[in-house]
C-alpha cells in the first residue's frame, strides 16, 4: 500500500472511458489573472479525486469550468459518456455542487431546500418530497425536515447541502472546500459520512481542499496543483482500501501517506 507518484494515467484506468475529460484548459480573467494554464484532468466513473493546492491555484475556477458556470479561455471539457440533453438542448451533465458555504435558501425549511433541484426540474411535489426525505434520512437529518437553516448547526447545514447535491443522483459531485469552516471533530464526522455516501452511491467525487490530511483520508487519487499560473503539478495515488475509518486515521501508513502528500504540496508551493 504505497502512494505511487505518477504522471499520466494509471494502468488499468487507461482502458476505461473517462466521464469527464478536461483537455488543455486555460482560464484568463478579464483583469489579466491567468487562473489556470494548460490543465489536463480525466475523471473516471466512480472514483474519488481530491484537488489539493494552495489558495489561489485555481481549484475553484476549475470546478466552475467543469460545471459550466464559467467558460474556458482555451481548451475543451468533454463529457464522453453523456447521453441525454436538457430542456435547452445542452448535454445533461448530471452534476451536484457543494460550495464552501452551505448556500441554502434561508426562507425555506430543510425539506424544501433539498427538493429545490427536483422542483427546478419540474418533478411533482410528492415524489420530490419522498426523495428528499429519504436523502435527509441518509445524511442523518431525519426529523429536521421542517427546521429552517437558521436553526441548524454548521455541520448540519453542510449535511443539508450535501443532501441537496445528491438528491438528483448526479454522476459527478463537485465539492469546493466544503468542510473548511467546520471544527475538527465535525469535519472528521462529515468525512466519514461522505465516504459512506460515496461507497453507497458511487458517484464520481471531486473534492477540493487545502488540507493534506483530508485529501489522503478521502481520496483514491490526489491531484496536486500549483499557483501563478494555476496548473497541475503531480498526481498521487492513495491505495489504502475502503472502508476507511478512525483506525486508518491513526495508522502509521496514513501518517506516511500524509508525509508524502505534504512533500508534494510543498514542492507545488515552492514551484
Amino acid at each position: 500500500m504505497t502512494m505511487a507518484q505518477n504522471l499520466g494515467s494509471a494502468t488499468g484506468r487507461a482502458a476505461r472511458r473517462p466521464l469527464v475529460s478536461v483537455r488543455q484548459i486555460s482560464k484568463k480573467f478579464s483583469n489579466g489573472t491567468l487562473a489556470l494554464r494548460d490543465v489536463d484532468l480525466d475523471l473516471f466513473p466512480g472514483e474519488f479525486v481530491s484537488l489539493l493546492g494552495p489558495s489561489g491555484c485555481g481549484k475553484s475556477t476549475l470546478l466552475r469550468l467543469i460545471s459550466d458556470l464559467s467558460t474556458p479561455s482555451a481548451g475543451t471539457i468533454e463529457w464522453p459518456g453523456a447521453e441525454s440533453a436538457d430542456a435547452y438542448g445542452r448535454p445533461e451533465h448530471s452534476l451536484g455542487f457543494v460550495f464552501q458555504e452551505p448556500t441554502l435558501l434561508p426562507w425555506a425549511p430543510t425539506l424544501d431546500n433539498v427538493t429545490l433541484p427536483l422542483r427546478l426540474k419540474k418533478m411533482n411535489r410528492t415524489e420530490a418530497n419522498q426523495r428528499a426525505a429519504a436523502m435527509l434520512d441518509l445524511v442523518g437529518l431525519k426529523g429536521f425536515e421542517k427546521s429552517y437553516p437558521r436553526e441548524l448547526s454548521g455541520g448540519m447545514k453542510m449535511r443539508v447541502s450535501i443532501a441537496r447535491a445528491l438528491v438528483t443522483e448526479p454522476k459527478v459531485l463537485l465539492m469546493d472546500e466544503p468542510f473548511a469552516a467546520l471544527d475538527e471533530i465535525t469535519r472528521h464526522k462529515l468525512n466519514d459520512d461522505l465516504l459512506m455516501l460515496w461507497q453507497r452511491n458511487r458517484f464520481t467525487a471531486v473534492f477540493v481542499t487545502h488540507s493534506v490530511f483530508e485529501s489522503v483520508f478521502l481520496s483514491e487519487r490526489i491531484v496536486v496543483m500549483a499557483a501563478r499560473p494555476g496548473r497541475v503539478m503531480s498526481e498521487l495515488m492513495v491505495d489504502a482500501p475502503f472502508p476507511r475509518d478512525n483506525l486508518f486515521r491513526t495508522s502509521p501508513e496514513y501518517a506516511h501517506l500524509c508525509r508524502l502528500g505534504s512533500d508534494a504540496l510543498k514542492k507545488a508551493i515552492d514551484a
Binding site: V139, S153, K189
Partner: peptide, 18 residues
C-alpha cells in the same frame, strides 16, 4: 436507508452546536 449503511451516529456533535 439500508441497514448497515445509514449513518451510525450522525446525531453527534454537530447537532449539539445548533
Amino acid at each position: 436507508s439500508e441497514a448497515g449503511l445509514a449513518l451510525p451516529n450522525a446525531r453527534g456533535t454537530d447537532q449539539d452546536t445548533a
